[in-house]
Amino acid sequence: MFKAVISEAKEFKKIIDAASNLLDEICFEVSEDGIKARAMDPSHVALVSMDIPKEAFEEYEADVHDIGIDLEAFKKIMNRAKAKDKLILELDEEKNKLNVIFKGTARRKFALALYDVSSSNLQVPDIEYPNEILIKAGAFVDALKDADLVNDHVALKVDDGKFIIYAKGDLNESETIFEEDSEDIISMNIGENARSTFNLEYLKDMTKAASSDDILKICIGTDMPVKIEYDIGGANLTFLLAPRIES
């Protein structure tokens, strides 16, 4: 069985939005401890990992199931959530559906078809990073917007104790520099200078679900995947994005 009650449907909507920016489908691995999912985007450039511990739910009861979901359909349903709605997720094993129930002034129920998406058994690779930066999401997203004006890819750099977001187009350049004492920076754990280049669209998708005051943990090295981690609604979201490397 699987039944979970979430006090704010809107918070769960953010989690689904975050995943659906990059993935078409997902397999929720539910167990008595909570829900987890790991998947690569269709082009295998990015990895999305989510962990929603049972403590994030108002009520939670489950044994082990793989619940395969079409994210586009789930996202459309979650878009129908109202501000004060509770969300109930409930597996109907007989009909092979996930019931998505909004409980507000009325009780509205959707039965979502399950897909045969087997769990990926992917693990987030255990990469050692020389640099770890905690930064307000709004500040980082703004720096990406600046970069977006000049090119479709961006360099994330650590240089002389500063965190730099740099883009260079055919004609124009943009650069945002964060020093350790910036109000936007919570902490910087700098080991060495580093530089990796990334596709901007992916970075924007990965950070879209974060509110501007949310804290992003960004891990970077040289020609290494960037790891971006944040919490929403009691869930942990981790994204890895492969770099562009000199061929």
Partner: peptide
């Protein structure tokens, strides 16, 4: 020229 690599290249 830089080329996009796949994330699976980093799975060991």
């Amino acid at each position: 020229k830089k080329k996009q690599v796949k994330i699976s290249d980093f799975f060991k």
